[in-house]
Amino acid sequence: YREIPEAGHIAIFDRSWYGRVMVERVEGFSTEEQWKRAYNEINEFEEILADFGTIIVKFWLHIDEKEQLKRFKERERTSHKQWKITPDDWRNREKWGEYSEAVDEMLLKTHTTHAPWTIVEANDKKYARLKTLKTLVETIEKEL
């Protein structure tokens, strides 16, 4: 709640409250009861925001396993991108299937009329950026 922007302002959150149903779930940092309960908590929180007049635009930037590997290797080879890759990234990559399952369920259970997801095909960075910007502008225009 402390990070929610005041009226007339914009904020961008990177995964924010979805961690419990993805990272915490897969890595075992929360119990099954906790991460399953989080779906309802997420939906209720977003509904409160929407009822207050907040425009919620959610994007899932999807890349496939092959593209992720390509990007990881490029980060390792490129000195100014090395900060973007850690041993944890490689370790988490080994759990691709578990993360994919968690993401699919998260998208299904937290896609609501007041806070729908937009899936962005992100193997092509230019396409992903354009689709994201177009969706954002269209949503804001429609809501305002």
Rank of each mutant, 00 (worst) to 15 (best):
K58H: 02
V57Y: 00
V103E: 11
W35A: 03
D88E: 15
F52N: 14
P5C: 09
P5G: 12
V57C: 08
Y99F: 15
E3K: 08
L136D: 00
D104P: 00
F72D: 10
W117I: 09
T31M: 01
E143N: 14
E6A: 07
R37P: 01
E6T: 07
V137D: 10
T132C: 04
V26I: 00
N92H: 10
I56A: 01
P116R: 06
T54A: 15
T78M: 09
H111T: 12
E65V: 14
D104C: 09
P116I: 02
R77F: 10
W96T: 09
H62D: 15
Q68H: 01
T139D: 04
L144Q: 07
D64L: 08
R91Y: 08
G28A: 04
R91V: 10
V137Y: 13
F29T: 01
E94M: 00
R71A: 02
D51K: 15
D88S: 14
T139C: 07
G8W: 04
D104Y: 12
W90H: 13
E67I: 00
I10D: 08
E6R: 05
A7C: 11
N40M: 12
Y99V: 09
F59V: 02
T132W: 00
T110C: 06
V23I: 15
A50Q: 01
D124G: 04
E67N: 02
E6K: 11
L61Y: 11
K95D: 01
E101G: 04
N40Y: 11
T132F: 00
K95L: 14
R25A: 07
E76R: 08
H114R: 03
K131C: 05
I140T: 01
F72P: 06
E27I: 10
E46T: 09
E143F: 10
A7R: 15
E105S: 06
L108G: 01
Q34N: 09
P116T: 01
V103Y: 15
D89S: 07
N123Y: 03
S16E: 12
I56T: 03
G8K: 06
L49S: 03
N123T: 07
S30F: 13
S100A: 14
E32A: 13
L144E: 00
D124M: 01
